[in-house]
Write a protein that binds this DNA or RNA. Structure first.
Lengths: 196, 196
DNA sequence: CCGAGCTTTGAACCGTGGTTCGAAAGTCAA
DNA sequence: TTGACTTTCGAACCACGGTTCAAAGCTCGG
């Protein structure tokens, strides 16, 4: 079935392009990354990108959508188990850091919503809100269950997510700290601030 | 002395422009903000901006430099007093949030270094590093003095600053939370994560 | 080996947006 | 009022970068 092989090759190509784009977006930011650079990073000619993606914005959309899906899946998995609030939060933090920094599918650009057309932006914002709500839910449950100290879950959640999202700004693969170390240190610090 | 009045008027104009630019940068991001929008926000014609500032990059530079100066001044003041580590950190956090969110001189764009020419960028990065080092120093001293639990001061400081810097992304003046509330909640959470 | 799609290419197009510029308007001392 | 100097204006310039396109190269069934 060569049609299958075709389809699989095309899909792999799309993945490779998304990886390259995500890397560039994280490194230089969405606005400062050119299609020509993305093409170069993916070993393609500039124009050829458009055979696989309709626009730069679509590229950003898929990057963000993909990583948000991964992180939402973690939230669901964590809620399904019988963990305490602290363990749940720790797991979510680790997963978030991995999504942000792992080179493998580091579609970490779920950050720059401004550069998206209204239609796509609405979808991403909705998904991001769902994620934020899921994390906030863990915090709230922890507070209600007396595992966490009283606090404003809205603001604590935003502080927590801000710390995590900001990693994309300073993390460099060639730097000292491995992603796992970062995840551990962040989980320690950011969970400790909540437990009674 | 009308020459004085001239100079003062020009200086005031520069300040007003910087405020307007900072506001737009924070709202829409550096790359997505046009000189025409900044001009409109400052009640000026597009071309007239260039009578006061040589380029958009210079505008960004002064925004960042100014807010970093303010935050560095807070660090110095705090180190001069006889406060404990927790109180020092609380003060720095409050000051940082104020710099990020206060409309008055909210030159909050000390965030997008990428859009700067090498010369100016080097200066901002150096200043930003000085600030990060000052905050890290408070954390380290706290750990050494047994006021804070053992931790990696580098990563804790980055988490903390990330949470603070990220506020510019979601804060809206017309929103529910006042800057002071945000500062209090953040200080509680982010300091509590360190104290033994 | 051939033809019908896929895929790739890179040069060219074109809108956006930072910047320039020449001239007009305003300000102030004399 | 005048004239020198400062400030303002907005249309035009120009480079950059997202996008298009027509032609060429490939792949694979027949």
């Amino acid at each position: 079935m060569p049609a299958d092989r075709r389809g699989r090759r095309a899909l792999a190509m799309r993945h490779a392009i998304l990886r390259a784009a995500a890397g560039e977006f994280r490194r230089r930011g969405f606005a400062d990354t050119g299609m020509r650079e993305i093409a170069a990073a993916a070993d393609l000619s500039p124009g050829n990108l458009y055979y696989y993606f309709a626009s730069k914005q679509e590229l950003l959309y898929f990057c963000q959508s993909h990583s948000l899906d991964r992180m939402l899946a973690t939230c669901r998995a964590v809620q399904a188990g019988r963990l305490g609030a602290a363990e749940r939060l720790t797991a979510v933090i680790r997963s978030h850091v991995a999504c942000m920094l792992d080179e493998l599918d580091g579609a970490a650009a779920h950050t720059e919503v401004e550069g998206l057309p209204v239609r796509l932006r609405a979808r991403i914002v909705a998904k991001r809100d769902r994620y934020e709500a899921a994390v906030r839910r863990i915090v709230s449950q922890g507070v209600r269950g007396r595992a966490f100290a009283p606090c404003d879950p809205v603001l604590v959640t935003r502080a927590l997510l801000g710390a995590l999202n900001w990693t994309a700004r300073w993390y460099r693969p060639e730097g000292e700290r491995r992603p796992a170390e970062i995840a551990d240190a962040f989980a320690d610090y950011l969970v400790r601030g909540l437990v009674k």
